[in-house]
Amino acid sequence: MTRRTWIGWQFVAPFLAVFALVFLAPIVYSVYLSLYRTRLIGGTSFVGAENYTKALHDPQFWSAVGRVSLFMVVQVPIMLLLALLIALAIDSGRLYGAAFFRISIFLPYAVPAVVATLMWGFIYGDRFGLVGNINDYFGVHLPDPLAPDLVLASIGNIVTWEFVGYNMLILYSALRVVDTSLYEAAAIDGAGQWRIIRAIKLPALRGPLLITTMFSIIGSFQMFTEPVVLKTIAPNAILTYFAPNYYAWQLSFGGQQYNYSATVAVVMGLITMLVAYLVQARAVRKAG
């Protein structure tokens, strides 16, 4: 080991130590748990891959995976597109009060997810919440946002609300470092705003967009707080297998199925890694 290597490891070691304790050890322990089965009657026994076989044939698990996949395919693009448009609008320099817009749109990020979900839960109330108020005042009948077929969209709205500003700021910050002489050169060539966006700004955003996409995808797959909080006001729309992470949590806490819960967590981690990898690989190939 060279001296440089040794010093490098010294800088990284504290982080890795915590990482080992907080992430690796529980993951390894989960993998270990997933190979066993503990029953209320009959105790613990080694079952090998049986839990994995069960997960592969568990319709509830796959329904949960399907739901978050749908969520990912619809919500993530909408949120990132909104974030991109706002970032471009603010960066364009054509807004009145751009600084106010920037910070206002970012503010929801500072609201704890629990509080955010409670607030939106109130607004969604079709009898006493704002939706109910609107129904009363205008004599209309809006569909119940917490009905089983709409609740996923309603969660999408909450998540978008929470994170659109955060993503916008990352994209906006990247636009700020674009060399302005490029714009001047483009302007001299007679390029319009749209041309500048397409030729200069969007390429500059490729990296940040990839990062925000990756984090959003991981976030979608890990959907948890929103269903937990909404369960009390929408008990029939949020099933215990609403999202994989929530399902794993229910299995271990409601049902004491620690082993199977660990299995679901491991499988879900693998799926998330796979999807994140595919997205990244695709993005790199496109760029290349």
């Binding site: 080991m1 060279t2 440089r4 290597t5 040794w6 010093i7 490098g8 490891w9 800088f11 990284v12 890795l16 990482f19 907080v22 992430f23 690796l24 050890a25 529980p26 993951i27 322990y29 989960s30 748990l33 991981i218 797959f221 890990q222 948890f224 994989p244 992470n245 794993a248 949590w249 271990s252 806490f253 620690y258 819960s261 660990a262 679901v264 967590a265 491991v266 879900m268 981690g269 998330t272 890694m273 994140a276």
Partner: peptide, 29 residues
């Protein structure tokens, strides 16, 4: 700043671990 051996592996492992949902690790933790 230190191009030491194992650097890429560190990064890959960390990003991989991020994909595992932390709430699902709650009980083991």
């Amino acid at each position: 700043k230190f191009a030491f051996r194992g650097r890429r592996a560190v990064f890959a492992v960390i990003l991989g671990a991020v994909a595992v949902p932390p709430t699902a690790l709650a009980v083991p933790t």
